[in-house]
Design a protein around this nucleic acid. Structure first.
Lengths: 241, 241, 241, 241
DNA sequence: GATGAATGAGTGTTCATTCAT
DNA sequence: AATGAATGAACACTCATTCAT
């Protein structure tokens, strides 16, 4: 198959490798297979990509960028805006809202955001599978998953989300509780849901929409357990044993 | 290193492969490396194990057995016993406890069980890392993770935990909500916590005991959000949108 | 770099491949590299040359022609002329000159010729490097070096230099001694000097002019050891042990 | 072909690669070919050698060691001994011998040494061919040839031959003339003779013994041109033009 | 003349596995 | 039990060369 239209070949290669990497893992996917699946010559892959790893890098990075911009959207149009309007105040240990309406809006927006995230991770579920796979090895993308939708870097300067919130509210600081909770009980379930989606669907026998509903309900239940009146607790109320 | 005492060599091989598999992934670990790490000749590994995959199988199965027995313990000494004592009744949509004391005991036991699970997964964190890794590929251990601490098989006959509870209460059936919640917001965070423990510890800079506390607190907060009076809801109270 | 003037592109390609071949060897030089160095597209090289080997051939042949014409000049303006003037007679085992003046002129001309050769090989030192490289392999240009400045073909008919001298003096025949000496102690040092010039210069730390002087002196000393009165010996005077 | 006797396999691999490298060049020799020629599996070569280049290294280094020890022998048993006996004195510009007998002995020994060298290079002619080949590329063994039988390092401390002579005679220093002459008109012809031996033999149609005689005669004639009475000149007597 | 895209045929190297001792 | 030697089957990557425009 000779010259295709503009960029189509490279896209096809990315598409097929994403699928194959996510199905069989990076190591077990052969360049030859990708070539065959994309209907091109093996060597052509090396014309567009420096190496097998470069192929993975490009796939991963494009995802990271998309994820980061989603997260920034949420911060801008929900947190920062509420702060600017004087309806939200960030204290050391809790989010303090001006009134019930502000809480409700925040909760609703958070749920919408989580829905958007869910759509996003499901759309790119193959890549998230790869990302988990790679993050479990001690390779190059080792720590990508920790930075994906989250703000785990100790070095706050380097974290754009932290910086954005901090600019809106100088008192702001992450609590250890919230960071850990967010990661293991919010981000991880989300990504895992995407990564295992096909398997879980097969085992459970549920429909796509039913799965979506159940998952969002579970998240919501989890999330609302932190609300207490007009406040959202970011730290443990009393010392754990 | 010539003749060792009885079985010590085989144990050493299992130990080193576990460590190496979890650090670098199954595919990227070389038999040669395992041999070197265990201080034995490469060919000797084939004296004890049929193949590289057999080595992984033995590692995984021993873990699965331990996990299953932990789960059965909980079912026996908490759920079945409460049912037998007439203090717990399982309905289609909820666990109905006789009184506050019964709820409290169940919650407390559940928390103790989760603590025991936490200790367990942390003790074998290398293997859990392997298990996640392998479950993300479409290989032999593909579905191990779904059966690990959970009861996800549609084929109820095959699930000993389900059978045990069903024997105590004939009405018992799993709700789709609870199964999904348990898996993605309880089991997955637990296993993920173990698998990423070292990485998270490094990034967060927290101590072992602090990490343990924070994680258990997060779980507890999540878990208690299902309690409502003397009942624990297993299904959504009203239809989700 | 689009349209260049007439033939400039082809020249640039030859120039850069000469440099690269001589620096890295024919095999280790990539067409891609040549293209990059010449600032043209890889495929364009195939517009001008049939193959990578064709490129080498054209480089080598242009050099061979120049070398042959230099050698013919010497034969014509020194040997043939002296014979025609009756001042030189070629015997089976020696060159017999009419008088001291004839010897002196021959020696002086020989030295001038060797100087010209030296300038020539240094000007094209890259190509000589390639030539040596290729002659050491058993490839196409395998025997080029033997024919370069010399007259080694047993098949005398094919050797224009031999034919030219033979036409002037019917008795003429090459002695085995002289052929071997000329090749290994005259031609080889000369070509090797060119091929290793840059390396030797760096290691010795000598200037260009000093190197030239030293080399010519060494040659001269070697050369004059064959002169004995009015004769130049082409064969061993007595049997070697 | 399973287990051979002790070390025989490795030797066979070295033997065949030497032959193939020298016949076709390093780059053009395939590992597969070596394996086939040695009657072993391709992978076995990597059991004994780290890489194709490592194979070459080991071949080259063993030769360098042998050559160095030959050169040291000459220095010890000829130069140093004559100095110690007070029959040779090294001046800035010449070797000054006590009497005709001393010169004769030195010349005779030098010729014997050159004969020994000739036998040596012919025995390993395949390797010398490789060495020339590699020294012409800008690779790893780039400068090996300059150090082979010679003493070209500017850094005299590092040159064991220089050090040995200098210990015997504190005035000793190499003249630029002699170093260049030795290299291009002594060492180079010798190595070249070996490298091209088979080709030259075929073209010339001469026998082995005749070739040997002719070559030694040519060397001798060259060498003796530096002798003048009881002295051997190491520098130009008067300035070259 | 000139180029970007495409390809076929390698080629060095790796690695799980087996064999003889 | 233990080992050094040996092997077959891949596999990532390279490169000269060609094609369509």
């Amino acid at each position: 198959m000779h010259p295709r239209e503009n960029g189509a070949t490279k896209e096809k290669i990315i598409e097929m490798s994403t699928e194959l990497f996510s199905k069989k893992g990076f190591d077990s996917t052969r360049i030859e297979e990708i070539a065959k699946a994309a209907g091109v010559n093996k060597a052509l892959i090396y014309y567009y990509f420096k190496s097998k790893e470069d192929l993975l890098d490009q796939i991963v990075h494009s995802l990271m960028d998309k994820a980061a911009s989603l997260a920034m959207d949420f911060v801008h149009f929900n947190i920062v805006q509420l702060i600017d309007e004087g309806r939200l105040e960030i204290a050391r240990d809790r989010l303090r809202f001006k009134d019930k309406a502000a809480v409700d809006q925040f909760v609703k927006n958070s749920q919408l955001y989580y829905q958007r995230l869910l759509d996003f991770v499901l759309e790119y579920k193959s890549i998230f599978r790869i990302l988990m796979l790679e993050s479990l090895k001690h390779g190059k993308h080792h720590k990508s998953i920790f930075h994906l939708l989250d703000h785990l870097s100790k070095d706050d300067e380097a974290n754009p989300i932290f910086r954005t919130i901090a600019e809106a509210d100088r008192d702001f600081t992450y609590s250890e509780e919230m960071v850990l909770f967010r990661f293991f009980f919010t981000t991880v379930p989300l990504i895992t849901f995407a990564a295992y989606y096909d398997d879980y669907k097969e085992i459970s026998g549920l429909s796509d929409s039913r799965l979506r509903d159940l998952f969002l309900w579970a998240f919501q239940t989890t999330f609302t357990s932190f609300i207490s009146g007009n406040e959202i607790w970011l730290k443990q109320k009393e010392e754990p044993r």
